[in-house]
Amino acid sequence: MRKEKIFTRDFWLIASVNLLVMTTYYSLMVTTAKFTTDQFHTSTSIAGLVIGITVIGILIARFSSGYLTQHFTTKKLLMTGTILLVPAMILYHFTTSLAILMAVRLLHGLAIGLISTVTNTAVVLLFPVERRGEGISYFSLSTVLGTAVGPFLGLKLMQTVGFSTLFNVEIGFAIAALVIATLINAEKIRFKKVQHNEPLTLAHFIEIKAMPIALLMFVVGLGYAAIQAYLSFYAGQLDLATYASYFFLAYAFAALLSRPFTGRLLDAVGAKAVVVPTLLINAVGLAGVAWTHSGWGLLVSAFLIGLGFGNFQSVAQSIVAKKVPVKRLSQATATFFIFFDLSLGIGPFLLGLIEPAVGYSNLYLLTAIMVLACAIGYWLVSHFSKQETN
């Protein structure tokens, strides 16, 4: 029997929007701290707060999007997000005070949160049910590329041509995302609306069935949060700063190679056969970061984390999509990403409280142990349940 297609016109359009938006997000994530300290002569902690403001905006948008998709068309929400993104990028040129910069970062976060929740929800509607795991794995590669291209491009532009040119490039990406969003077929990504006279409850925003895997995502994500926040400092201590700049490229390369296969495996044999190995590989990669003393060791660890965490992220999202009916898909996606964003947003702060006492090496080892415990816990729960659970 002929399989229904995954790679449709609207798939490529939505993936392109997601790639452009994620590139703006991650390129400015790695450069905003430097911009803040250079422009306003602030401390590192204040620069970290400026970065974190974006996460607050993202969380507000995530929490609201589940409700909004039931009352407004998905296309309108996507257009709203991309329209907000353009002035957010332009306003970086006019950040003459710390307060203005924080307001711009908040607006940027609102746009990112709305767009990414809508794209990750809408694209699932394009996939046949029996191929959703595979489809989500392919789509999530656009995010992986953003996490690799964004930091690399942002740092290169900052170091070679300066912040003004960097902001102009971001404006170009935002305009391109807006133009591409207008081409998406609204009917292909439309949800059935609920009755507007229903009383407003928490269920309009959060999907309880997504909570177990979302909580697992929060704990597992702490390891990657430590990588994002502290790798440059740790690599500097080891005299491996040059290799650290290529860490995320190695991570993305591993995820790009493996995600299509893990998506098919998830659809074919179920979650346990994919979740447990990806968590174990991730734990080994984090332990490798903790114990490495060479550049190649750091890059091999990056490759393992790409195979492990890079695949677990998309697999976990696929599990959420499979566990809920289509009418609850937006709330489930929002719930999943709320906890993922919380992990990446407050994770560095929580881990930063521990780091002075244990050091970076032991901090990464601690996150490896946490991920290993998650793998064992997931295996026990799924093994002793009558049916595979999330």
Rank of each mutant, 00 (worst) to 15 (best):
L126Y: 08
I58K: 11
L351F: 03
S97G: 04
P348S: 11
K209N: 07
A214Q: 11
V169W: 13
A332T: 07
T69A: 11
A321P: 09
S301H: 09
L84Y: 02
E187R: 04
F233G: 05
T36C: 00
V275H: 13
V129E: 15
S361H: 09
L114S: 11
H108D: 15
V169T: 10
V50M: 01
I46P: 08
K386F: 06
I51M: 15
I206H: 01
P199Q: 13
S97K: 01
V289D: 15
A47R: 03
E207H: 03
I376D: 12
L178H: 07
T182Y: 09
I136D: 05
R264Y: 14
L372V: 01
I136K: 03
I90G: 10
L28M: 13
W12D: 01
M158L: 11
A357Q: 12
V269I: 13
W12K: 00
L28T: 11
F253E: 06
Q331L: 01
N390W: 05
V55Q: 13
T8A: 04
N18E: 15
R190A: 13
E170T: 04
I58W: 10
F63P: 03
T31W: 07
S65E: 14
G288Y: 15
Y364C: 08
F11D: 01
F349I: 06
H204Y: 11
F127E: 01
L59W: 14
T292E: 04
L266K: 01
L125N: 14
I281N: 07
G81P: 12
A321R: 13
Y251C: 00
L380W: 10
I58Y: 12
Q195H: 12
I60T: 14
L28W: 00
S245E: 06
L256H: 07
T82F: 07
T80A: 15
T147A: 14
W296C: 00
T160K: 07
Y251I: 00
F340I: 02
A316K: 03
F253V: 04
I354P: 02
G352E: 14
Y25F: 15
A99F: 10
F63W: 03
S343V: 01
A61V: 02
Q313V: 02
F253W: 01
T73N: 14
L107D: 12
A250E: 04
F261R: 02
T121L: 10
I58E: 09
G113I: 02
S137P: 04
M370G: 04
I60C: 15
T24D: 13
A225I: 02
T121H: 12
L59Q: 10
V320N: 09
V161M: 07
K188F: 08
A225S: 12
F152D: 01
V320Y: 13
N197K: 10
Y224D: 13
V129S: 15
F303I: 00
T31I: 02
P199M: 03
A226D: 06
S97F: 07
I184H: 01
L78P: 02
Y25V: 02
F152Y: 15
I14F: 14
T121K: 10
Y251T: 00
K386T: 08
M211D: 12
S97Y: 09
S343A: 15
A283P: 08
F337I: 02
R2P: 14
V275D: 12
L380F: 08
A273E: 08
V219R: 08
T54R: 00
L298Q: 06
A254D: 11
Y26M: 13
I6G: 06
L157W: 09
G109C: 06
